[in-house]
Design a protein around this nucleic acid. Structure first.
Lengths: 159, 159
DNA sequence: TTTTGCATGGGAATCGTTCTAGTTTACACT
DNA sequence: AGTGTAAACTAGAACGATTCCCATGCAAAA
């Protein structure tokens, strides 16, 4: 509801597509979505928003710092709302589940490395890819598969 | 020249395109190249190799563990020869330069995090994006810009 | 209410990448 | 060395994700 305030603070007009998209991303269960996911969610809500608009708005949100874009394995971008606290990601390539974590020690070491190189860091990303507990144990994940949370393993099938 | 042995060890026939591509990637100055870069390098050498072949071969090399694929910001993949030692990357978004580092403490913490989650890690990647010393100081980088080493900043023209 | 200008939607265009079809080559076996 | 066969090759079409283009829409300013 106060989304419109967020938008204006970010220097963006509070238009309906923008409000809807931000609303979707802010749903707790929406953690990591592709542009396509957001588009489908809009269609499901009965909103007539073009895919081009979704991409445009997501990029604007990224520039404004409202969302964070991730380039997980598989090429397509996934977005999550920027809730302030930086965190890193663990992605299950079997079920697509995404876990988040924050490790101060890792952050500190990164800072140190950058400092040594005289490098000014704008952003950094740490992803771990593998198999989650649920998939290892039962071949299925206890958590539901959020569409687009990642791309289950499949790149070439072997050439 | 013993590249053909490397290929056979990896279970791949020693064809001319594969030998050439591996050769290009093994040049010390070739550190991180996109498929397009490799293709252009082949053309420059006067080799008639199709772009599709480059992509196919790179994917095969990845499957065989000969090269590592990175998904830097910007969507497109970059490849580097797998020289055994894992390392992480620092990418200058101004000049495209890529620095490498290895920090045992970070690796250890990552292992710890995965363990805590009961997560089996297949691969992990850590990238830092920002501005290198050369670009900060002089607006230019002391190192030459390897084409495709990364994608100089440009996503929306707002930053 | 008219003007002004950014935002939108839909489709075409573009980019990186993969697939398809038909041809050629590497390599094991005469 | 000569040959058969599976694998690899090339070019170009196809593809999915994303961006561009532009006529239309709509909201704030005049």
């Amino acid at each position: 509801m106060s989304d419109s305030t967020d938008l204006k603070k970010a220097g963006l007009k509070a238009t309906l597509p923008r409000l809807k998209i931000l609303g979707i991303l802010e749903e707790p269960r929406a953690r990591h979505m592709t542009a396509e996911d957001v588009y489908k969610a809009l269609l499901d809500m009965g909103e007539e928003v073009g895919l081009a608009t979704v991409y445009r708005v997501l990029t604007q949100f990224e520039s404004a710092g409202l969302v964070i874009r991730h380039n997980f394995e598989g090429g397509r971008s996934v977005f999550e709302v920027n809730q302030g606290g930086h965190h890193d990601h663990v992605v299950c390539v079997e079920c697509g589940e995404v876990f988040e974590f924050y490790d101060p020690a890792i952050e500190e070491r990164q800072r140190r490395v950058a400092e040594t190189l005289g490098f000014h860091v704008d952003s950094h990303s740490l992803y771990m890819y593998g198999t989650c507990l649920g998939m290892k144990r039962e071949g299925k994940c206890s958590k539901r598969l959020i569409p687009g949370s990642g791309v289950p393993r499949e790149r070439d099938g072997r050439g």
